[in-house]
Design a protein around this nucleic acid. Structure first.
Lengths: 154, 154
DNA sequence: GCAATCAGGACTAAACTAGTCCTAGTTCGG
DNA sequence: CCGAACTAGGACTAGTTTAGTCCTGATTGC
């Protein structure tokens, strides 16, 4: 119902592969093999992540990529930002809109609120949690408390 | 960061116009004028909404559209479903994916969880609330309690 | 110097979206 | 029963976006 580009999807997969051993320097070709994605695609994703400062890169024979931060310091929101941009859920929710009718803008602010709520939630989910093998993190109360949409602001 | 098509945006605007007087039968041309959208576009939106059962239509001279339910019985999630379809945040989160690598699927389920959380939230916001003139509903505790992401399930 | 590797960007093909328009069917009023 | 006012459905087009590939240049290690 809400869409996310494939690039973002790939990004999480690649980051996941990097997170397996955060210290190790991984070449794009290596990551491509491990993720079952094509090499050019992986490279493209990594370039984007590098520009966004989410991975560090090294050139040369023994070069490659590694995470710039620990997996629990990278949020889902950040990953989305890299390839989706700061695009809001509706156009109108970005800047002050020029639309004439005031009803429209009433609706606009409502979407903005929803948008912010979603964003806050995404900011509270880390790469580390995304990788949780299965429901251990789910059953526990930790995530439950973390995923508390800041309802007060809403 | 997450995108929603314009059609969905239009849909909320049109529904908002209809919600102004739920009993009244409104012609597409009338709604077009009130929403400042073009008539063909409004028609297209209304046809979609009609097929989805969100509005009732009547043909003929005094025909037009009206809401099928009360504004507080229509959720944001429903509105999204009409034009965005049941498309999930990632492709993989729809059905059992055929992707080989298991890491990928671990990530996939994580997105699914986020997706469901978002969906639950949207299901708890009604058209009536979307139309709230301004923050009266926001300050009060009502929405705050309503917008409680079902953290337990997460 | 050579091989491995990243950086950046150009380019293409495909998919999707928005928007328009046309034709057919339905209802009301005279 | 005829004509006007509507909706229903779908075909069609133009524009935008996305995914994916490829090429050329820069950097590093051996």
């Amino acid at each position: 119902m809400l869409r996310m580009g494939k690039m973002t999807d790939y990004a999480t997969v690649v980051l996941a592969a990097l997170a397996d051993d955060p210290a190790r320097q991984c070449a794009a070709a290596d990551l491509a093999e491990r993720t079952h994605l094509t090499q050019p695609t992986v490279s493209k994703v990594l370039k984007g992540l590098q520009r966004a400062g989410m991975v560090h890169s090294a050139r040369g024979t023994r070069g490659g990529y590694r995470l710039a931060r620990r997996p629990d310091e990278i949020t889902a929101a950040e990953i989305l930002d890299v390839f989706e941009g700061p695009i809001a859920i509706t156009e109108c929710s970005a800047a002050a809109s020029q639309c004439g009718i005031e009803k429209r803008c009433r609706v606009g602010t409502a979407w903005q609120r929803i948008n912010q709520a979603i964003r806050r939630e995404l900011e509270d989910v880390t790469l580390h949690e995304l990788l949780a093998p299965e429901p251990p993190t789910l059953r526990g109360g930790s995530l439950a408390t973390r995923i508390r949409i800041v309802a007060a602001r809403l």
